[in-house]
């Protein structure tokens, strides 16, 4: 089977693909604090056009179908933001590595 459809058809493009058996899970919940902070972070990055909203969308699509299927909504957002800030040279890979280790340590975690 050709792989070209993986390139041409982005994993987020799902209109019309669902079946009636996929019932909608209708429930309410509040966002977790980190999810709301993540949302606010991306809004502010858009205001400054450091990462605009459309770039962030592209970033959530360009993570491959495995991550697209397994990560939650805001998990995709923060991974997208990280990748875009790296691509734009705003952050370096090592800065993220050092900082995430430092933050983990505050919570007595090891990455």
């Amino acid at each position: 089977m050709s792989t070209e459809n993986l390139v041409k058809h982005l994993p987020n493009d799902i209109g019309g693909t669902g079946s009636s058996d996929d019932k909608i899970h209708i429930f309410e919940r509040d966002l977790y604090p980190w999810e709301k902070r993540c949302h606010a972070l991306l809004d502010v990055l858009d205001y400054h056009k450091i990462v605009n909203t459309e770039e962030k969308r592209r970033g959530t699509e360009n993570i491959g179908s495995e991550m697209a299927g397994k990560l939650s909504y805001y998990e995709k957002w923060i991974v997208s933001a990280s990748n875009l800030l790296l691509q734009k040279g705003v952050l370096t890979p090592d800065e993220i590595a050092v900082k995430t280790a430092e933050v983990a340590k505050r919570y007595n975690l090891v990455l």
């Binding site: 390139v7 058809h9 459309e54 592209r58 360009n62």
Partner: peptide, 9 residues
């Protein structure tokens, strides 16, 4: 390639 806003359908 890369990004689009016109769904396949």
């Amino acid at each position: 390639v890369g990004h689009y806003r016109v769904p396949m359908y």
